[in-house]
Design a protein around this nucleic acid. Structure first.
Lengths: 207, 207
DNA sequence: CAGTTGTGGATAGCAGCACTTTCTACTATC
DNA sequence: GATAGTAGAAAGTGCTGCTATCCACAACTG
């Protein structure tokens, strides 16, 4: 198919597709002449994936490029893929220098028997959140972590099941990406629904 | 205290504080003369809150203004506050027009016995996520919702406990804000840690 | 075969956002 | 009376994610 059809079937304007091509988010089409190219189903799928990450996931163009690099990496491993996706999804410039927060996270990990490199983005992002909580005076916020841990373990198991249910390695890697990006958004959305539900039960218990 | 001290104690540059004052994110200080003003602990606290929402929560200045409006609303109710915070945190322009996804969400809510106005942002944001999942070919992604629901109910209960443990109404409202903004970030972070943990156990079970 | 439309490749421009800088005018302090 | 700090406003900056325009050429249309 030509670029116009790619645009029509995804709703992404032609200039934007060209922009993604330039930025390396989409592989170039197959040139049939110096100024004619053909695109396949793979391009269609990739383009939809890019839009999902940008619009639903809120990822920057640069982050999307990093994530896509994982999918195209010949040396594919689930664990490695997860690390890269985590780094790409996490916001830059997070401050993990607060020693109290670092200690809270270390203690938390130990009590759970979890192991994590303190240099990983996963570690840093939690430190950063706890630091912020302390700064706004919520010194007890870290007590929520126990609940969070139990709950997130269940989520991670479900995520893993979902990924391992994939028919092949490529699909599994994409499952990691979709699970991370859409999964975060989905949990946030369901959580809002649950909060709403509980708080309305509180104010109007008869329903 | 004067603006310089406010800046020093929070690490926020003076021009940025002035910007926040102009944008209505901070109330004006008490003028001691036409060009001298004094700020109190309330300003300090409010400024830290703003930074937490902007940096950790990733909220826009406009969204922060909306959220702060909730805290200053004389007609304060937890339920109402939650709705406003949800709307502010949710990204704009979400597409909830896909009928299949809408039906999936309706069915999900019914199976859980939850009630939610289809016009609410909480409803729309879940529709939007499921739509995206379908677009990228993950038609079975909605099966994750059952797990998400159980898990989010526990999270919501923990959130509610946290909020209800507040000493007064103002603190409770702030708990809603902090719980929503930092809570999402914290769950996302812990979830990354949990995923990491599980996937490393998978590749190196002896540890 | 002329005319229209579509295309690749490239460059330039634009809108929005979150500051940041610059300015004037005044006050307080050393 | 020099210096530093402050208020308030306006303009400027840097980044991001597109969007518009241009050109030369290909492909189809009547």
């Amino acid at each position: 198919m030509r670029i116009a059809e790619l645009s029509r079937r995804t709703g992404v304007p032609v200039p934007t597709i060209k922009y993604y091509l330039r930025e390396g988010l989409l592989p170039a089409g197959e040139l049939t002449s110096p100024n004619q190219a053909r695109y396949g189903e793979a391009h269609l799928h990739r383009l939809r994936l890019v839009r999902a990450m940008v619009e639903t996931g809120g990822l920057s163009i640069a982050a999307v490029r990093d994530v896509l690099g994982v999918l195209d990496d010949p040396d594919k491993s689930l664990h490695k893929a997860m690390g890269t996706v985590t780094a790409a999804v996490a916001p830059p410039n997070l401050d993990d220098s607060d020693e109290v927060a670092r200690e809270q996270v270390r203690e938390f990990l130990e009590s759970r028997g979890w192991h994590c490199n303190p240099k990983s983005f996963a570690f840093k992002s939690l430190v950063s959140v706890l630091t912020t909580a302390r700064e706004v005076g919520h010194h007890e916020f870290f007590r929520q972590l126990d609940t969070y841990a139990e709950v997130c373990l269940r989520l991670a198991e479900a995520d893993l099941d979902y990924v391992l249910g994939a028919p092949n390695q490529d699909a599994a890697l994409e499952g990691v990406v979709v699970g991370s990006v859409l999964g975060d958004a989905a949990v946030a959305a369901v959580r809002r629904l649950a909060r709403r539900e509980l708080s309305s039960r509180l104010t109007a218990p008869e329903c």
